Simulated assay, not measured.
Amino acid sequence: MIKCIAVDDEPLALKQISSYIERTPFLDLQASFDNAMDALQFITENKIDLIYLDIQMPDLNGIEMAKSLSNGPQIIFTTAYSEYAIDGFKVNAIDYILKPLDYASFFKASLKAQSFLERNTAFSENLQANSNHLFIKSEYKIIRIEIGDILYIEGMREYVRIHLANAKPLMTLLSMKKIEEKLPSASFMRVHRSYIVNLQKISTIERNRIIFNDVYIPISDQYKEKFQSFIDNNFLI
C-alpha cells in the first residue's frame, strides 16, 4: 500500500481527492490537510510515500512546500492552472491533475506514482555492492560510490547519510540495517544505533568516541564489546 496524504485549502477539493484516495485499492490515506504547514509537520513525524498537493494555497504554496522536501515523499500536484505544470516538473513531481478533478485523471496519475515507487523500492531492495563499490539512488540520480571512500554512515530515520573522504555527503532512502547488510563486515562496523564506520579509516579514538575530522562518533554500550575486540586484535604493544 502507498501511504499518502492530501493537501488542499479548498474544502470541496480536499474532500473529493480524499474520497478518490479511499476508493483506490493500492492507496492508503493517512491524513488530509487544508494548509501546507500542518502537512509538513505530519511528514516529519510519519513515513509518507506520496502527496496529492494543491499549488495555490495561502502562506506556503504547493511549489514552495515541494522545494522544502529534500528526498521526501513523491508528489502529484492538483491545480486549476496548466501553466504550473512546468514548475511542477522542476521540483520532480510525478504528475499533475487539472481541476476540476475527475477520477479517471486521478487514477492515471496514481498508477504512474505506483509504478515509480515500485521501481524505487525494487532498486533499494536490490542495492548492488561488491568488494569495490556500491550504487545508491540520491536526488533522482543513481550514483556509484567507491566503498573505500566511505568514512562513516549516519542513520536519519528512513534515510542514511553517507559521509565520504573527498566529496559531499550523500543522502539516500535506505535503512541502516539494509546498507549494513550490503557492506563488507571485515571493513565496516556498526558502533551506534545511528552510525556505521569504516574501520580502515579510523585514525583517532578518544573516550569511547571515534574522531573523523571534527566529528565525534559515540560508541554505544550495545556495540562496545565488539568494537573493543577489533581494537585488541589490531593493537601493537
Rank of each mutant, 00 (worst) to 15 (best):
L117R: 09
Y52I: 03
L151C: 05
S110E: 02
K67W: 06
A31K: 07
S82P: 05
T79E: 09
N132Y: 07
N61F: 10
F107E: 03
R119L: 14
H133S: 14
R144I: 01
R23H: 08
L69H: 00
N35K: 00
I136S: 00
F26G: 05
Q74W: 10
S110A: 10
P73A: 06
Q56M: 12
E139T: 10
K108A: 06
I143R: 02
N92R: 12
S115E: 15
I94C: 02
D87H: 14
I86C: 07
D59P: 05
I48K: 12
D28M: 08
H133T: 10
H133G: 09
K99Y: 08
I43K: 01
N71W: 04
I142E: 14
S18P: 13
Y84P: 02
D49C: 13
I76D: 11
N71P: 05
S18C: 14
E64C: 08
M57I: 08
S32V: 09
N46K: 15
F107S: 01
I55T: 03
D28Q: 13
V91S: 00
N126L: 07
S19K: 07
M65Y: 02
T44P: 05
I150R: 04
I76C: 13
P58M: 10
S110M: 00
N130T: 12
I21R: 01
D38E: 14
S70C: 08
E139Y: 07
E139N: 15
Q30E: 11
L111Y: 03
N120K: 14
E118G: 02
N61M: 11
F116C: 09
Q128L: 14
L127A: 06
F42R: 14
F116N: 12
I55Y: 03
N120Q: 14
Q41K: 15
F106C: 05
H133N: 13
N120H: 12
E64V: 05
G148W: 08
I17Q: 03
T121I: 06
Q74G: 09
F116V: 13
Y152V: 08
S115R: 15
I143W: 00
L29D: 03
R119D: 15
Q56E: 14
E139R: 11
V91T: 02
I55C: 07
S19M: 03
I43G: 01
L29K: 05
P25C: 06
N132G: 07
F33N: 02
A93W: 00
Y140L: 11
I55Q: 04
F89P: 07
L98E: 03
D38A: 11
K137L: 00
F123K: 06
N132F: 11
R144Y: 02
Y81M: 13
